[in-house]
Write a protein that binds this DNA or RNA. Sequence first.
DNA 1: ACCATGATGTCAGCGACTGACATCGCTCCG
DNA 2: CGGAGCGATGTCAGTCGCTGACATCATGGT
Lengths: 199, 199
Amino acid sequence: MSVSVINYHRVMGRWEPNARGRLTQAALELYVERGFEQTTVAEIAKLAGLTQRTFFRYFSDKREVLFWGSAQLQELLVRTVLNAEESAAPIIAVASAIEAGAELLQERRQGALLRHRVISANRELQERELIKLALLGEAITDALRQRGVPEIAARLSAETGITVFKIAFERWIVESKPREMKAIVDELLNELKVVTGEI
Amino acid sequence: MSVSVINYHRVMGRWEPNARGRLTQAALELYVERGFEQTTVAEIAKLAGLTQRTFFRYFSDKREVLFWGSAQLQELLVRTVLNAEESAAPIIAVASAIEAGAELLQERRQGALLRHRVISANRELQERELIKLALLGEAITDALRQRGVPEIAARLSAETGITVFKIAFERWIVESKPREMKAIVDELLNELKVVTGEI
DNA sequence: ACCATGATGTCAGCGACTGACATCGCTCCG
DNA sequence: CGGAGCGATGTCAGTCGCTGACATCATGGT
């Protein structure tokens, strides 16, 4: 039984700072310890020194607390696509974005691991993860369109990129002695070229 | 205001046949008329001449009633992959499966259209759709492995195929004068080859 | 000191979902 | 033919996610 990093509920007044951060950390702790389903929102809020009602003011639902970072990831990928060399083919722009995302996750391996463990133990959370990835795909499609890429190519490049990102992440998490995630991405891209070459 | 095709609740005894079918039809009707969120499970059950409790005996949750057919689709795609020519490259086996799936949907355009309209109006339903597609991808990956395809190629081929299937379906639904869905699939596969050729 | 404002708390309520137990109709066995 | 067994359905009570309405508390400016 791990000792809680936070223990605010005894000492905190109503206006302690960083309510969102406390809620996030409390939720992650409880989800890891007991699992997502076995944790109630009231418990999370109590551990963070707040009430259930306040939890729902910060997060639209019980799952969303685990996905707050995805906006940042999306912002990074979109920016990287937009900043790619003008001459770069769509799939190349997307590849560079994926690699940038891989680096971001690499810096937070510990958190990413915990988060992934929680998510992969629960179906509802997997659903949420998938829709976040789908939204990421739409955002990248938009970015490619802004680069003048035609609709179909944009959509296919973006969605294919998301697929590679997802598979790379899973393999990276699972590897006992982890390579750089970028290496995995490159391996997958090469294999993708081979596979689709058969069409 | 459309007239309900079903109106069992006045006349039906406890053991009328096809409870699952009645629930499915009642749910689709109400979801179309009022939207998913504005429909309660109790209302669905009542329209089908049953109780809420019975609804949850047939469907694990309120969303699942719209996804009962996905098992059949999955069965078809997996079978098609397994039956593909032994010499066919993985992506080719997957392509033939997608085209078989396209034909299946084609036969049910009306229902598919209704269903898609309901799903695209609601985020929770989109989440469920995405996880069903992900499971479909896993099933196809398995089928490819059984054909002796190495892990990475199997996964990439399957997931890429799912992407193509998803995009093809969306375009097919949206087109005012619909082509054969197979034609759309072929167009996307060609474009995919071009796009990934740049890697 | 006072007041506007934003963050938080309190309370009541709906609806999804579940477990436990009762009831109904059918089938089959004696 | 009657009752036992059984599967499908109903009933009831309860938990939890989530929301709207309103009260309350600190803080900054006047």
